[in-house]
């Protein structure tokens, strides 16, 4: 426990340093944050336009889909904000910057994450929150404490899962200098996919986003429980409540793989 506290404290310091660095270019920061917000806002306008034309999607109304959208985007924005360092990791390995992190007596994953905390993602976070709140007020949902808690858990689990994907992508930089765009596809494609109910997709897709990269467990299933919808795919309420945990599990697995990568780096250098 003391170790976790220690780690969180250091991470908080990293955040502070990033804030102060990025505030050196305040105008640019404000612009970028706004741009991020508007850009992700446009995505939602597209969703709105489709609901405006077709009325509903697989039995889901716009506010219901908006709730899903808000969950996914908040989770993704959090992950993008705090795990941006992993996104740039290939560059770090190439330039030898990773050696420096190995020369410090702290966990490498923590240092990579702290290396670049991207604040402008607040733009997407805010946009996701606005959509979520709009949806929450439109829906006839009794906001009981378990439901609120489930939403928070889903966001945290989702953030963990997306972070895991970024960690996994970064890990491959230990083996290959080619950037693996495939991961971006899974990550960004995953955001796009899980904004809509899982029933929309074919079996293969559903299985992929449930069992391989369990994105549906941090978005679709918790959303079902919050909305009180029955699942055409037949999941139970208890599974829906427990499902965000898979996000954390996924991150833990990815960090294990990361450690394998670090071990590989130890034996090969760059």
């Amino acid at each position: 426990m003391a170790k976790l506290q220690d780690t969180l404290l250091l991470y908080a310091r990293y955040v502070g340093v990033s804030v102060r660095s990025q505030m050196q270019y305040r105008a640019s920061f404000v612009m970028l944050t706004f741009a991020t917000m508007l850009i992700s806002g446009l995505e939602f306008v597209a969703t709105w336009a489709l609901f405006d034309r077709f009325g509903s999607l697989a039995g889901w109304t716009l506010p219901e889909a908006a709730l899903l959208y808000g969950l996914v985007n908040m989770a993704f924005a959090l992950a993008e904000g705090w795990a941006r360092g992993f996104d740039e990791f290939g560059q770090m390995v190439k330039s030898g910057g990773f050696d420096r992190l190995l020369l410090r007596p702290r966990s490498t994953a923590l240092q990579v994450a702290g290396h670049h905390v991207q604040l402008m993602r607040i733009g997407r976070l805010a946009q996701g929150a606005v959509v979520f709140i709009w949806a929450a007020t439109r829906l006839q949902v009794a906001w009981s404490p378990p439901r609120v808690l489930l939403c928070l858990l889903a966001i945290a689990g989702g953030a963990a899962l997306f972070s895991g994907l970024m960690v996994l992508q970064a890990t491959f930089a230990f083996w290959s200098t080619e950037s693996l765009e495939v991961f971006n596809t899974v990550t960004y494609g995953g955001v796009e996919t899980t904004q809509y109910p899982l029933t929309v997709y074919r079996d293969g897709f559903r299985r992929f986003f449930t069992y391989v990269v369990p994105l549906a467990t941090v978005t679709y299933y918790p959303a079902l429980a919050v909305l009180g919808r029955s699942d055409p795919l037949g999941s139970s309420l208890s599974f829906q409540y427990a499902s965000p945990l898979f996000g954390f599990l996924f991150l833990i697995v990815c960090l294990r793989v990361w450690n394998l990568g670090v071990r590989h780096y130890h034996s090969t250098g760059s």
Partner: peptide, 12 residues
């Protein structure tokens, strides 16, 4: 992904 989503919208 997009074909699936639009297909579902049309079906709705």
């Amino acid at each position: 992904i997009r074909v699936a989503i639009f297909g579902a919208f049309y079906a709705s």
